[in-house]
Amino acid sequence: MKIFVNNIPVNIIAKTDLKEWDVYHTIKKGDNKMISQLDLMGDILFVDLAETELKVFFLLMQDKKFKKATSITFAVNDYQSAKKLVKDQFTIVKAAGGLVLKKDQYLLIYRLKKWDLPKGKSEDGEKMKVTAIREVEEECSIKVDLRSKIGVTWHTYMQNDKRILKKTNWYLMDCVDDKDMKPQEKESIEKVAWFDKTELPSLLKNSYPSIVEVFKKFNKKFDHKIKLF
Results as ranks from 00 to 15, higher is better:
E139S: 05
I27R: 09
E187C: 06
Y157L: 05
K102R: 07
V130A: 04
M158I: 09
K87H: 10
F218K: 02
I150K: 00
V214L: 11
M41F: 07
I12H: 01
K220F: 11
K220M: 15
D124H: 12
K167I: 13
E123M: 12
T156P: 03
I142A: 04
K15Q: 14
E190M: 15
E138V: 13
Y208V: 02
K220C: 07
W21K: 15
T70M: 10
I164D: 08
L108C: 09
K149C: 11
D78I: 04
L172H: 01
G151L: 13
H25C: 13
V76C: 12
W115N: 14
K216L: 11
L59T: 09
K114M: 09
E187R: 09
E53L: 07
G30T: 02
K113V: 06
F218N: 07
V100A: 13
I133T: 07
K94W: 10
Q159K: 15
K121V: 05
D178F: 10
E139T: 04
K179Y: 06
A82F: 02
K166M: 14
K33D: 01
N160D: 12
L18V: 06
S81M: 07
T26H: 06
K19F: 08
E138Q: 13
I12Q: 00
F215L: 03
K191R: 14
K191S: 06
K55I: 15
Q105H: 04
V76L: 08
V152L: 13
D78M: 03
D39P: 01
H224Q: 11
K67Y: 04
K162F: 14
H25Y: 13
K186C: 08
K119G: 12
Q184G: 01
L101Y: 05
T198W: 10
K84D: 15
I72T: 05
M128W: 07
E126N: 09
V100G: 08
K29T: 12
K179A: 12
F195C: 03
P201Y: 04
D63A: 15
K28M: 03
V144L: 07
L228V: 12
E187G: 02
V23R: 15
I12D: 01
P9Q: 02
L38T: 03
I35S: 00
P183M: 04
Q62Y: 02
H224A: 01
K191E: 06
K65H: 13
N219L: 07
V130C: 09
L146C: 12
K102V: 01
N206E: 03
F222C: 07
G125R: 09
M181C: 07
F66E: 02
N160S: 11
L49C: 06
R111D: 09
K84L: 15
N169E: 14
D31Q: 12
K162P: 05
N32L: 05
K166T: 14
D174G: 03
M34H: 08
A69F: 02
W115I: 09
I3F: 04
I44K: 06
L117C: 04
G98N: 02
P209V: 02
F4T: 00
